[in-house]
Design a protein around this nucleic acid. Structure first.
Lengths: 248, 248
DNA sequence: AAGTAACCTGTCAGTTCTGACAGGTAGGCC
DNA sequence: GGCCTACCTGTCAGAACTGACAGGTTACTT
C-alpha cells in the first residue's frame, strides 16, 4: 500500500509544510518551504510558475519563482517567449494534476528550439504538477526534474504533490498579491470614508448629509481619490479601490 | 516527543482531511470532514461556529454548524442570545488558538444562565479552537467536548487543531459564501459586458462606441442591472456586482 | 518660521447620468 | 399564433458629476 512508501517523519514534514504555508507572507519564506518540498520529493531541480487569470490575458507572462532550476535556462525561455509555445505550460494551464514531460512531448510536439535548450541544460525528464483555483482565479505549476534514479515512484510523487500543491498555490497567490500592495496609493481616512459610501450607491449630496460636511468637499475628496487611483470617474475609483482592497 | 503520540495512520488521516477540505463545496461534505476531525480528536461532541467580519457587525449572529452537540443546547443559546455574552466566543473572536473552557470561565465569569444550561447538558469541560483570516475576513471556532478520559493530551489536541483548523476555516468560508450564490440575480451577457466596462471607468458614450451600439442602449442595460441588483445608481451596481462576483 | 498633509468650502460652465415617456426586432417555447 | 426573454433605440427634463477657478484652517515636521 502507498501508505507504507511514506515514512512517518515524511508525513510529519508534510503536515508541517502545509501548516507553514498558511502563514507564509514573504517570498523568502516561500522559497524555504519550496526547498522543503524539493527535499521531500528527492529531486534536485524545482521551479514554480504562477499565473493569474484574474485580469491578465493568456499572453501576459507568468510569474516565475525559481528554487533550483538553472537560472540561465529560465532566462532563455523568458527571453525567447518560449513559454507560450511550451506544451508543458499549455497543458498545465488546461488541466490540473501531474504530467510527465515525456508524455506531454509525445502528445504535443514542442518547438525544436525548446527541446534543444532543455537538453543542453540536462533537463531530460521530469514532471510538472499544476493546480488552479477560482478565488483567486489563477494557476500554479511546479516543475521538478533532476531525479537521482531514473525509477521514480510516480504514485508517491502524485500523493505528495496532490496534498501539498493546493497550499503552495494559495501561499503563492497570497505572497504575490500581497507584494503588489507595497506601492499602493495611500488613501486618507476621509477618502476611504467617502469611498465606502459611494460604494453603497450614495450620491455626493447624501454623503455630505451623512458626514455633515458640504457637498463640495465630498467632490473634492472624490477628485483626489480619482487622481491617486489614476481613474477617470467615480465608478473607476470605486471599482479600483475595491479591487485593491482599499475599502472595507 | 510529540511526533510519537500520533500514529502514522493518524497523520495520513490528517493529510487526507486537509486535502479533502480543498475541494469541499457543500455543507454535507463539510459535515463528513468534521466527523473525521472528531474521530481524530477522540471526542464525542463537536460544533463549528463561523463568523464573517466582512460587513457584519459584531452583533449579527454567527453561522452555527453542528456536528454532534446537543441541538437543544445550541437552540437555547441562540434563542436567549447567549452567544454574545459567552466568554468562550468573546475570547475566541479576540485571539486565535486553543482555549480551555475552564480557563476562560475562570478568567471572565460567564452569566449564570449560561453555566446552568451548559452543565444541564453535561458539557462540563472542553476546548475551543479559533482561527481567523483576512481574506475572506472571518473567524471559525470549533468547540469540542465530551472526552472519554478526563486526562486529555493538550499538546496532541493543539497539534491537530493547529494544522487542520486553517483548512476547515477556508472550506467553511467557501461553503457559506458559495451557498449565498444560489439566489443571485442572473445578469444577461450584455449586462455583464456593460458592467465590466463601467468598472473600468468608461462612460456610457465610450461603451457605446466600444460595443458599437447606441448610448441609449448602454443606459438601458445599466438601468436593468440597477433594478436587478436593487441599487440606486451605477456606482452601487458596479460595487454590488463586484462584491457578488458577477463580473470578471 | 516655513513647509506640508489633511481637511474644508465656494462658484460655474459643461458633461454625464437618470427616469419616464414610447417604441422596435429576433429567437425559443407551448 | 401568442408569450416571453434578450436585445436594441429614440426624446427630454431634471439631477448628478466633473474640472478648473480660488480660497480657507489645523496639526505636525523640519
Amino acid at each position: 500500500m502507498l501508505q507504507n512508501s511514506l515514512a512517518s517523519g515524511e508525513m510529519m514534514d508534510m503536515l508541517d509544510i502545509i501548516h507553514a504555508t498558511t502563514s507564509c507572507r514573504t517570498m523568502a519564506r516561500f522559497q524555504e518551504l519550496a526547498k522543503g518540498l524539493q527535499n521531500l520529493l528527492g529531486c534536485s531541480k524545482t521551479t514554480f510558475c504562477w499565473k493569474s487569470l484574474e485580469q491578465d490575458t493568456l499572453l501576459t507572462p507568468p510569474h516565475l519563482l525559481n528554487v533550483s532550476f538553472p537560472e540561465q535556462f529560465l532566462k532563455l525561455l523568458s527571453e525567447r517567449r518560449l513559454w507560450r509555445q511550451n506544451p508543458i505550460s499549455i497543458r498545465g494551464m488546461q488541466q490540473e494534476g501531474l504530467q510527465s514531460w515525456q508524455d506531454t512531448f509525445n502528445l504535443m510536439s514542442p518547438p525544436k528550439q525548446l527541446l534543444d535548450i532543455k537538453y543542453s541544460f540536462g533537463l531530460y525528464s521530469g514532471y510538472t504538477f499544476s493546480v488552479a483555483s477560482q478565488r483567486p482565479r489563477g494557476v500554479t505549476m511546479v516543475s521538478t526534474g533532476g531525479y537521482d534514479s531514473p525509477k521514480i515512484e510516480i504514485e508517491r510523487l502524485k500523493f505528495i504533490l496532490c496534498r501539498l500543491m493546493p497550499h503552495f498555490h494559495l501561499a503563492l497567490s497570497e505572497v504575490l498579491e500581497h507584494g503588489r500592495d507595497k506601492n499602493l496609493p495611500a488613501l486618507t481616512g476621509r477618502e476611504v470614508e467617502v469611498l465606502s459610501w459611494l460604494k453603497e450607491g450614495k450620491t455626493s449630496w447624501e454623503i455630505s448629509v451623512i458626514l455633515k460636511i458640504s457637498e463640495r468637499t465630498i467632490n473634492f475628496h472624490v477628485t483626489n481619490v480619482k487622481k491617486k487611483l489614476n481613474v477617470n470617474n467615480r465608478m473607476g475609483a470605486v471599482a479600483q479601490a475595491m479591487h485593491l482592497g482599499l475599502v472595507n
